[in-house]
Simulated assay, not measured.
Amino acid sequence: MSEGAWRAGERQCAGCGERLRPEARPDAVYCSSACRARQWRREWRLRKRVAAELSGVGRAVCPECGDSWVAGVDRRSNAVYCSRKCVTRAWRARKETFGERSR
């Protein structure tokens, strides 16, 4: 018998790569419904990202640090800043300039 022949009947989950149970249905592709849902969400995000990249309208740039992201995929579609850190930094900068103006 050739090496690895005992593995010929083993199938792997298309989502996580784990081995499917021996009693799984012959047409089973995923090890669980959670794994199937996780894989579907992963593919959905990828399709959404590709569509946004191809259309060119999905790009957003953080005014504080210059970081760019795909709006509606990586972050909310109406997000202005890339992170809470940049939001805080911008708020502090606005607060300081306002305080200097009022003196």
Rank of each mutant, 00 (worst) to 15 (best):
G72N: 01
G4V: 14
T88V: 13
R36I: 04
R92A: 13
A5Y: 09
V61T: 14
L46V: 12
A79S: 14
R41A: 13
C13A: 05
E23R: 12
R89G: 03
V73L: 10
E23T: 11
C86G: 01
G72E: 00
W44Y: 15
A52S: 09
R94P: 09
S32C: 04
A37N: 08
E18R: 08
V73P: 00
R45Q: 14
E10T: 05
R92W: 13
L46E: 14
V70R: 03
A52D: 02
V50T: 11
L20R: 01
A60Q: 11
G17D: 08
P22F: 04
T88N: 13
R21V: 10
E43F: 09
Y30I: 02
S33I: 06
R11Y: 03
V57T: 15
A34G: 06
Y30Q: 02
R103I: 01
Y81Q: 08
S55Y: 05
A28Y: 07
A90T: 06
M1T: 12
E10S: 06
G15C: 04
A90C: 06
R84S: 13
V87A: 11
G15E: 01
S32Y: 01
R21H: 14
R92G: 13
A90K: 09
G72R: 00
K95C: 09
R25N: 12
A90E: 11
M1R: 09
A79M: 06
A37V: 07
R103A: 04
L20E: 00
G4L: 15
K48A: 12
K85A: 06
R7M: 11
A34M: 03
W6G: 07
G9M: 00
R25E: 14
R59K: 10
A60I: 04
K85L: 06
G56R: 02
P63I: 05
A79L: 04
Q12V: 06
S77I: 15
R76G: 07
E23I: 09
S32M: 04
A14G: 00
R49D: 04
R101V: 05
R59W: 07
E18A: 08
Q12I: 03
Q12W: 05
R94F: 14
A51T: 03
C65V: 08
G4Y: 15
A14L: 02
G17A: 08
R41F: 15
G66S: 08
S77D: 13
A71Y: 02
A60L: 07
P22C: 04
A60V: 07
S32E: 02
V70F: 02
A93Y: 11
G58V: 00
G9Q: 00
E96S: 14
V57P: 01
G4R: 15
S32K: 03
G72Q: 01
G99F: 08
V70Q: 01
C35Y: 02
V57L: 15
G66N: 08
K95W: 13
R47N: 13
R41L: 14
R75G: 02
E23V: 12
R36T: 03
S32A: 05
C35E: 01
G56H: 02
D27C: 14
V61G: 07
S2M: 10
A71F: 02
D67P: 00
C35D: 00
R94M: 14
A51Y: 00
A60M: 09
V61C: 12
W91Y: 14
C35H: 02
R38Q: 03
R76T: 04
V57S: 15
E100I: 07
G56S: 02
S55N: 09
Q12M: 05
V57D: 15
G72P: 00
